[in-house]
Design a protein around this nucleic acid. Structure first.
Length: 352
DNA sequence: AATCCGTGGGT
DNA sequence: TACCCAAGGAT
């Protein structure tokens, strides 16, 4: 892998200054989580922003801070309440971990977030990136960060020609972040690299003419902007069939709570069956695209509740089970396609 | 190290 | 349309 040699002190100073000045003048300052940030609000926003675009997160963040305005409010909430608030955001282990994290900070740190990176990373769901982000944005202390934006920016700026997500590639990026991040006003630099990656050094059609570090950019100088960072190897997406049961006695729907870890863990869902039931009537079916596989869901009518459900390890077991009023589903965390299916069917029935 | 974990925006 | 991938972390 082609990696840059160690940066000179002069290079570091120049890049820091240029990026920080650009952030002050052209960076983002109006995002909801940038207004009077606390360790808690920064923590919440950073977890929500993992693998999720800013525009998607904003309404969830606003609702979350209304519903769980403090660490104590979150820690004392039920898992079902938390999952219902997270409904639709995906990667639901983030929500389960966020609730655990609130209890962790209260139990281990008396309700005050720790300020060292090591202790921050011991919080459930907080890794190297999020720990650095909390240090930078909430505590305004030295907190290097490497995320997708930073990887793209550094890969182009320094001409890093490595296998994406390989350990060598990641090690190089983190070394650069540690060198470049200043110990004073770390939050401005960190926000600067995020904003630069998100608004200028974009994945496609980057705005190099607006870039403050264009003249230092290896990829721009060598005409490799479109090649860097190198594309990830794509894998074949498998196709899976899932069988679900539909039991709907008098305006109620029978749901089971899915186990975690596992897909849709912690959410309420139509009971998943190990196989297609014999002599059952098909209530409906749908296709759902996950990142790793395509799900063909078949939903079968059941005259009796199906307490048995397929667990994550493919075994069959008894899970928590409950009848939900069809008008109550808005306050319940269901997988998005399942909720969609149920609501479509209810709407359909009303018209026939 | 490789795989799993959701959903939706952008092109 | 189909594909990439987004303020990553856990196992």
């Amino acid at each position: 892998m082609h990696a840059p040699s160690t940066l000179s002190a002069k290079q570091i100073q120049h890049l820091r200054h240029t990026i920080m000045q650009w952030q002050t003048q052209h960076g983002r300052h109006d995002l909801p989580w940038q207004q009077s940030p606390s360790a808690y609000s920064v923590h919440v926003s950073e977890i929500m922003l993992q693998q999720t675009q800013v525009s998607t997160v904003i309404p969830y963040f606003e609702r979350w801070m209304q519903r769980f305005p403090s660490l104590d409010a979150l820690a004392s909430a039920s898992e079902d309440d938390v999952m219902a608030q997270w409904q639709g955001l995906g990667y639901y282990s983030r929500a389960r971990n966020l609730r655990k994290a609130a209890a962790h900070v209260i139990a281990e740190h008396g309700g005050e977030y720790p300020d060292c990176l090591q202790a921050l990373q011991a919080i459930p769901g907080v890794g190297r990136y999020t720990a650095g982000a909390i240090r930078s944005f909430a505590l305004q202390q030295y907190g290097p960060i490497v995320d997708g934006n930073v990887k793209r920016l550094y890969a182009r700026l320094f001409g890093i020609d490595g296998e994406p997500n390989s350990s060598a590639f990641n090690r190089t990026l983190w070394q650069l972040a540690e060198q470049l991040t200043p110990h004073n006003a770390s939050h401005i630099y960190s926000q600067g690299v995020l904003d630069l990656g998100a608004t200028v050094c974009t994945k496609s059609q980057p705005k190099c003419s607006e870039c403050p570090v264009q003249s230092e950019c290896v990829a721009h100088a060598t005409g490799r902007i479109e090649q860097l960072p190198n594309p990830k190897k794509k894998r074949e997406k498998p196709f899976r069939v899932g069988h679900f049961s539909w039991h709907q006695p008098n305006q109620h729907i029978h749901l089971v709570k899915r186990s975690s870890p596992g897909i849709w863990g912690g959410l309420w869902c139509l009971p998943e069956l190990p196989d297609a039931p014999k002599d059952a009537e098909l209530a409906g079916e749908f296709i759902h695209q996950f990142t790793h596989y395509t799900l063909h869901a078949k939903v079968w009518r059941a005259s009796t509740p199906q307490h048995l459900s397929v667990k994550d390890d493919n075994s069959v077991g008894y899970l928590a089970t409950q009848l939900f009023d069809l008008n109550q589903l808005d306050q319940t965390g269901l997988p998005t396609p399942i909720k969609q299916f149920i609501q479509d069917r209810i709407a359909l029935k009303r018209h026939t």
